[in-house]
């Protein structure tokens, strides 16, 4: 029996299939409904409010809120900050974790096991519980209220090293040995041969780091003081509380903050989902 006919059989056999589909559709709609509502509110005329739920979704629509916010607030700046911080954090994380993982996986040096175990310890140290001393340390490095202070404390990911090491371990010995026989330097071996083979792992860690940085709240909330350096998660609340009872402007701000990630998600859904099941862990 091939897989297809088995699946047809399965379809025929499940008496609750339509019930399951209905439940699935209902939950899906509940899950995306708030996001759709946000989009509709963001194009309502400024100051709009209603007690009739249907009216949130009916015209008139306007894009003037978007124009207004983009011109008169720091929101694009915050979007840019979030993006820059997330991109640099991701790149640096990938670079330093892959270099370290390569050394541990492929090079010979003394105390290798001790060093690897020392890195493993990091898995057990929760960033949230060391954030007060971290603040002091970053302060003494003069990096409070700077991009560097946002980025550097987040890049040493022990999980990244572990995942990449196990991936590099899987590179066939013969490939490595013949490259070394040909006089290939370790650096060349690293980026010409080993790294390309580890693309799926790199992509998974990259996506993970990016989402983590994009959504990071606690650390930027503590370490950034000037409004021009806020990232979106820290900036948006300022906005929402300023206009607390009005709906339209805060929702437009939320929409501006969300549209780029939603678009990115729709494009990369498969990779993101794969990346998460790959790393099997979350931030």
């Amino acid at each position: 029996m091939n897989k297809n006919s088995l699946k047809i059989l399965e379809k025929n056999r499940d008496p609750f299939r339509s019930v399951k589909l209905t439940v699935g559709i209902t939950i899906s709609i509940i899950f995306i409904f708030p996001i759709i509502w946000m989009m509709f509110v963001s194009v309502k005329p400024d100051g709009f409010m209603t007690t009739n739920p249907v009216e949130w979704f009916t015209p008139p629509y306007t894009f003037s809120n978007y124009v207004d916010l983009i011109m008169n607030s720091l929101i694009l700046r915050w979007l840019w900050n979030s993006l820059i911080v997330a991109v640099i954090t991701t790149i640096l994380t990938l670079v330093i974790t892959s270099l370290a993982a390569f050394a541990i996986s492929q090079m010979k040096f003394r105390f290798k096991n001790t060093i690897f175990i020392f890195f493993l310890l990091g898995l057990m140290i929760p960033g949230e519980a060391t954030i007060i001393p971290l603040y002091e340390i970053v302060k003494s490095l003069n990096m409070i209220d700077s991009y560097a202070g946002l980025i550097l404390p987040m890049i040493a990911s022990p999980l990244g090293v572990i995942i990449l090491k196990s991936f590099f371990d899987g590179v066939p010995r013969e490939v490595i040995e013949s490259a070394i026989m040909d006089g290939c330097s370790y650096l060349k071996l690293f980026y010409k041969i080993v790294l390309p083979l580890a693309k799926p792992a790199m992509a998974a860690i990259g996506i993970f780091t990016f989402i983590g940085s994009w959504n990071n709240f606690l650390w930027p909330y503590l370490s950034i003081l000037s409004e021009t350096l806020y990232t979106l998660p820290v900036g948006l609340p300022v906005f929402n509380s300023t206009y607390s009872q009005a709906y339209v402007q805060p929702m437009t701000a939320n929409a501006i903050a969300s549209i780029p990630v939603i678009v990115a998600f729709l494009i990369f859904e498969k990779q993101i989902v794969k990346g998460i099941s790959f790393t099997g862990i979350k931030g």
Binding site: I27, F31, W37, W214, F217, L232, L236, E269, V273
Partner: peptide, 21 residues
């Protein structure tokens, strides 16, 4: 899959204020 996962990528500030409003 998309709609179950979509909220996870939103910023904590966005989901919090969606809830408040």
């Amino acid at each position: 899959r998309g709609s179950f996962f979509l909220p996870s990528i939103l910023s904590v500030a966005v989901i919090s204020f969606l809830a408040i409003f």
